[in-house]
Structures are given as C-alpha cells and as structure tokens.
C-alpha cells in the first residue's frame, strides 16, 4: 500500500486547485491512510459544496484509491478571511 505524507498532499492540492491556503493533517498516526484537509481556493468561487468537494476529490483521484479515510473543508479566499477563528 502506498502511503502519502501531509506535505505531498498539501503540495498537490495547492498546485491542482491554485489554493491560497492548505492544511493537511495525517490522522493515521503516520501510516498514511487517514487524512483531513482544509483548502482555500479561488476555484471554489460560485460553486456548491458538492462541486467543491468533487474538485478536491478529482485533484486527489489517484491518492484516494489508497487513502481509506479522508475528510475535507473547502473555503473561498473571501469565506476564509471571514472565519472567526482565523
């Protein structure tokens, strides 16, 4: 089984989605099978939640064949700037 790192996924999401901010957390204790991701990208502008998630899924289509648990949050740069915890 291929395992991926936080940095690898972060780089891939940044490139594919022209993301302005990406956070990837390995929740698998290092085995590389479970991740959560937060992506901020102008490509999400005007898109529904499911369209945004499809963009992320397709950016990681190869990786998601072996990553068995993946959760994601998607924001436009404007939404991200408005996040109270940000």
């Amino acid at each position: 089984m291929t395992s991926y790192t936080e940095d690898y996924l972060k780089q891939k999401l940044t490139e594919k989605l022209e993301a302005t901010h990406v956070e990837v957390i390995d929740e698998s204790d290092g085995c590389g099978g479970k991740f959560s991701a937060l992506v901020v990208s102008p490509q999400f502008e005007g898109k529904t939640l499911i369209q945004r998630h499809r963009l992320v899924n397709s950016a990681l289509s190869e990786e998601l064949k072996t990553i068995h648990a993946f959760s994601q949050k998607t924001f436009t740069p404007k939404q991200w700037a408005e996040q109270p915890t940000n």
Partner: peptide, 25 residues
C-alpha cells in the same frame, strides 16, 4: 455517483454528498 468514498447520502433520488457535506449542511 462518481464519488470515491462511503457514506453516500441521497435525498429525493439526488446524490447530496458524503459525511463532510451532510455535517456542513
């Protein structure tokens, strides 16, 4: 659904999304 993960939720025959989307909704 061309969707890589389980669970998958349908409302009125339409695919709505997985766990993250349902949670955000």
């Amino acid at each position: 659904t061309n969707w890589p993960t389980i669970p998958q939720v349908f409302i009125n025959g339409e695919f709505v999304g997985g766990c993250d989307i349902l949670l955000q909704m």
